[in-house]
Design a protein around this nucleic acid. Structure first.
Lengths: 241, 241
DNA sequence: TCAAAAGTGTTAGTCGTACACCCATGG
DNA sequence: CCATGGGTGTACGACTAACACTTTTGA
């Protein structure tokens, strides 16, 4: 043992975004089980220590699969959090003692972003409770999970900017241009006129108009569209600057 | 001890870029001392294990300071490398044994980008040998350092794109627009006509023309300019899209 | 008939690109 | 006087932003 250098466990934590029907960004939180702690303090980001034969990407894929039951989810590593005091809260140390059957007093984590259609069924093999929380209703979380979430918001915006196509991971397979507009507005600083946005989007050959239109709306029904990833990849350019 | 979960050392490694007078991107490599290994195999990225009271950013700052003697260098964390086999080469294990006086067989690292004016004096308090290598002349390196470098190239391009002002960290304090052009060309896919580049750059109010001009050139002497960070921050916008 | 949103068209202005032209300097 | 690069001007086309206008639907 070298006393000066850290010798520690390493975890991954995943911030999974969804976009709800009220045009809000949401995040998946799980429940950790602890006695003597009020239910509101029981939420946390899904995550896990890394196994001895795992790479970090592999660990994140495992966490996401155990969380949702979905096989292949898009994911992006965005930052390593290693503040020496990030796991120094007594509740957190106590939780790790029981969860991992071992006393852990420092731990560094590698944070991942992921995206999920909010209407997709969540089938967790690991957690009893998995819920969507609108980002402005996320409670106070253990460790530095609130900090991770706030940095993930900056990161998802950069991600959309550098690869517009991943925005469709958050939308249903068929969507209206207004839905796309509202999602884009929630994720981008730039505010675009919706009419011009409509014109621009519908001009892209990888946005395919469907026969279906909205029903039971008190205004002219909007057309549904789908995103064609193959055509997008051919053009490859990022068409929204 | 939990056998399934990794319990490991964590290091930081820094890829420090410079831009030489032949318009090539360079990288700083240090020498590790090992007997029975040919000199060509002795190069590596500057790095260190993290100390027990350090955050990763702090460790990277320490490494950069020990490497160059410069107090504040811009730096950016870009990726955690944690392949279980990244430190499984026998030479590398042997080197860690002597360097850290302890047997280490797995180690994960957090990679950082940094930028340095290539004419700045390097005053290392830790390494005897620190040298600039043009990126296409980087030798085969230990661990996954070659992989880290190739990913850092993608990352520095993204960085320039998202914050144009950091490009001036690589240029001398006074520079010609041609120098800036050549650096930009080396870092960007977009190829711009140099005349239009000139017109655009010189129109920015944070690019200040100096009285000085080139001497001893066999053509009309170019004016020197300097970058004014304060004025840039006021405008804040990224002016090259 | 009204409100609300879909969807199309027009126009003015901005910005990038291409290129012509003149300037300055050393060989 | 020529080659080389500095530096400025112009003109065209593409894209953006603002907004008017028409269409469709339920209440």
């Amino acid at each position: 043992m070298i006393p000066n250098f850290i010798h520690t466990y390493v975890s991954v934590d995943c911030v999974v975004f969804g976009f709800d029907f009220e045009n809000r960004l949401n995040i998946l939180l799980v429940q950790r089980r602890m006695e003597d702690v009020p239910a509101e303090r029981q939420r946390k980001l899904p995550g896990s220590l890394i196994l001895s034969d795992e790479d970090v990407d592999g660990a994140a894929e495992r966490v996401l699969h155990e969380l949702t039951g979905i096989k292949k989810m898009v994911l992006k590593q965005f930052k390593c959090f290693a503040d020496p005091l990030r796991a120094s809260n007594q509740d957190d140390i106590k939780w790790m003692d029981t969860e991992y059957k071992h006393h852990i007093d420092r731990i560094i984590t590698v944070a991942y972003l992921s995206l999920c259609k909010i209407d997709h069924k969540i089938n967790s093999t690991k957690y009893d409770t998995v819920d969507w929380f609108p980002i402005d209703e996320v409670p106070s979380l253990p460790f530095d999970h609130n900090k991770i979430i706030s940095e993930s918001l900056i990161e998802i915006r950069k991600w959309i900017e550098s690869d517009f196509s991943i925005i469709f991971e958050l939308l249903p397979k068929r969507f209206t241009i207004r839905q796309l507009y509202q999602l884009y507005s929630a994720l981008s600083e730039k505010q675009i006129d919706i009419k011009n946005f409509h014109k621009k989007i519908s001009s892209f050959n990888y946005i395919i108009p469907l026969e279906e239109i909205e029903t039971n709306v008190s205004h002219r029904a909007a057309r549904y569209y789908r995103f064609d990833a193959k055509i997008f990849k051919k053009n490859n350019t990022k068409l929204i600057k």
